[in-house]
């Protein structure tokens, strides 16, 4: 498949680097201010892909991916648009417009950007319905963990709930607080030094990121369980009940530990509700994954309970999910 990769952060760059290994070709890459389109810059015809190493090097050295206009990447001759720009809330722009452009051109779209899937799922489905292209978004939930495709395999109507630890930063903080008896502020600054938490950690520690993933899962369950999308309930972040971990004192973790339990930021999605909150879980239980690990737990009507754990973030990990989706579109 010929890929246009929009967004040159950790995930976008990893997709560019790993696409060849998966048998795909990157024909265009864009970030917010620059682009490289194979046909234009290499002068060697549309069939030849961009030089992945050169793109990554230019981004590192000059902060640009090439000398073309980002708009050219959207209109390049690709089969699949990989949307890996940063997640935005509300109208989910500019990611949503990128998706629209590709679908209106009857091209496939693979998203790593949670915004359009969480905030405008109905619009996304409507665009896909009118297009010969399809939309996939495995990378938006749980990084490398195949959460969405597992729900699809089991069929959404046979999945009653999906829950789990879906934010590695919050999980790292809670794990360290419990293990070392430290308070939130101390562990947060440690996580920032390690690069596990961002300078502004709100998105992770307030539960927003986990909630977006649960909203996406709720949409998959809701739309997947009905024949006519008009009958499905659409979820967005506003429908989620969200509590973060910012105020959780160390004493809560100590009291939990005395009783053989610990605290994890658990998100849960059904076809009716989305909830994210710190929860008591058995200390050695399945959901008490450590550090930056994530886990997705599915409750199914016939297949029992399924657990899948792994890396919920990271460039190559998330790129694997993106490229897995590209493979499913072949």
């Amino acid at each position: 498949m010929r890929l246009a990769v929009i967004g040159a952060g950790a995930v976008g760059r990893s997709v560019v680097k790993l696409a060849g290994e998966h048998g795909h070709e990157v024909v265009a890459v864009a970030d917010s201010s620059s682009a490289v389109v194979a046909d234009g810059t290499d002068g060697s015809g549309g069939a030849v892909g961009v030089d992945a190493d050169a793109v990554v090097a230019r981004k590192a050295e000059r902060g640009i991916v090439g000398d073309d206009d980002p708009a050219d990447a959207l209109t390049a001759d690709y089969d699949v648009l990989v949307e890996a720009t940063p997640t935005t809330l509300g109208d989910a722009e500019p990611g949503f417009s990128h998706v629209r452009t590709a679908l209106e051109r009857d091209r496939h779209v693979v998203l790593a950007n949670k915004g359009p899937v969480a905030e405008r799922y109905g619009d996304l489905r409507a665009l896909a319905a009118d297009s010969a292209g399809d939309v996939r978004f495995e990378a938006t939930v749980g990084g490398a963990i195949p959460a969405v495709s597992t729900v699809e395999d089991i069929e959404p109507s046979h999945v009653t709930a999906v829950r789990g630890v879906l934010n590695g930063t919050a999980n790292f903080i809670l794990t360290r607080m419990a293990a070392e008896g430290l308070d939130y502020d101390h562990v947060l600054s440690e996580a920032q030094d390690l690069g596990v938490a961002e300078a502004d950690p709100s998105f992770d520690v307030d539960g927003t990121d986990a909630a977006l993933k649960c909203v996406i899962l709720a949409n998959v369950l809701s739309f997947g369980a009905v024949d006519d999308p008009a009958d499905a309930r659409e979820f967005s972040l506003a429908d989620a009940s969200v509590e973060g971990i910012r105020d959780v004192p160390g004493s809560v973790l100590r009291l939990a530990a005395e009783d053989g339990r610990t605290v994890r930021l658990i998100g849960e999605a059904t076809g009716e509700t989305v909830q994210v909150a710190p929860r008591l879980v058995p200390e050695n239980g399945t959901l008490a994954v450590s550090g930056t690990q994530n886990i997705v737990q599915l409750e199914t009507t016939h297949a029992g309970r399924l657990n899948i754990s792994g890396h919920g973030a990271g460039g190559p990990e998330t790129a694997s999910a993106v490229l897995g989706d590209v493979g499913r579109l072949e």
Binding site: R163, D247, V248, V263, A277, R279, P282, G285, T286, Q297
Partner: peptide, 12 residues
């Protein structure tokens, strides 16, 4: 006040 509760019907 905030409540940290277990998940209903998941594990004790």
């Amino acid at each position: 006040l905030r409540v940290v509760a277990p998940l209903a019907g998941v594990e004790p």
